[in-house]
Design a protein around this nucleic acid. Structure first.
Lengths: 206, 206
DNA sequence: AATTGTGAACCTCTTCACAGCT
DNA sequence: AGCTGTGAAGAGGTTCACAATT
């Protein structure tokens, strides 16, 4: 299949959310123009993004909100639940366990890992904390698809390597460091300092 | 000044971090090739990014790590401390208060806001929790430059509007919703669901 | 000999603009 | 009449390739 850009995939996520809000408001039909306005982009962008995957609208009328949300959900793979593991239970890790937004989108944290002997075998939100060395066994048992990395920078690469060795291929990385992975593994970085530094740059310029 | 792309600014942040690590390892000189390798990009990209701001290297030799880190810090506005306010003390908000990475880069949380009467006037990590309606007074007193939005989606727009009215022009937004702001205000979105959904898409394709 | 700095080429993403459908 | 879907044009970002410098 033709390679779709990260930007397009990211925007599909925002359309998906927008459509959910419109459906809550009982809106049944929406134009690309309206979706664009709600997200601060152009209507041509919305139509082009969708055109990579099919034709979902009716000329002269627009899109059926429920049907389009359903299609985008299917495209993004949100019609299934994903089993997520969390590695590292510092401040960020603990916050993510309770983050309702994930569950709402079908991402369920099914296992927690840490390497601190004090924490291993304790319970957190009904989940037993496992030692990182038991990764393969637990990942298999819980059918883990995605791992959130919330460990210190110095451990991030080795922890990810351990998960890769057990067959995990998708990571959301909160450690502010660049990770090396094979071509068939995807790492998405969530680096809050980078965004803050962009704000710092902006304020310095203006 | 010529408009510099967000991607370039984002990469400068990563170079800044990379240089910090190299300096810790007592490395005194580094080539664009080495910086590129450590970040999984090309050396031409590194040189081009830097070229927008000046010439910092020596042909045949590379860059002095300390000097280059210093220059990038100056470009990004990291030579000063930034006073940050946090709006919303749910799971994410509380995690961010303790997030050491921010302080390390010169971003200091100086004020906390919430609208829950139960929380207002309580103390959190040595900071008094203020009601969001007192924004202007506190923002002025604490010389707030940047506000982190960690409130529920339904309040995000109105809270940001309140801060804008008090002269704040830079926001890091964790609420998964699109915010409308005037042209001279910058909002950087930190939306973890979008990244997870990109992983979902990737796993569905491959 | 090594590596920078940069114009030009290349590639990718966004916007335009309009034919075509409802 | 209104709005989609899309090829073509335009804008912007990345990589190439090489002269310049140490």
């Amino acid at each position: 299949m033709k390679k779709i850009s990260d930007s397009t995939i990211g925007r599909l996520s925002t359309y998906y959310r927008t459509l959910g809000e419109l459906i809550e408001q009982k809106v049944q039909t929406v134009s690309s123009e309206k979706i664009a306005d709600l997200n601060g982009i152009t209507s041509a962008q919305v139509r082009k993004d969708l055109s990579f995957f099919g034709t979902f609208g009716k000329r002269g009328l627009g899109y059926n909100t429920v049907a389009l949300k359903d299609e985008i959900g299917r495209i993004l793979g949100l019609k299934q639940n994903w089993n997520v593991a969390l590695a590292g239970i510092g401040n960020i890790g603990r916050a993510l366990i309770d983050y309702g937004e994930f569950k709402k989108q079908g991402f369920f944290i099914k296992a927690i890992f840490d390497n601190d002997p004090q924490k291993v075998n304790s319970e957190l939100k009904g989940l037993k904390v496992h030692h990182i060395d038991d990764v393969c066994e637990i990942a298999k048992k819980e059918k883990i698809n995605i791992v959130i990395i919330a460990v210190p920078v110095k451990n991030a690469q080795s922890v990810i390597d351990q998960f890769i060795d057990c067959g995990i291929r998708a990571f959301l990385n909160f450690a502010p460091t660049s990770i090396k992975v094979p071509g068939d593994v995807m790492v998405k970085n969530e680096n809050m300092s980078i965004e803050l530094e962009a704000l710092s740059y902006y304020l310095t310029q203006n």
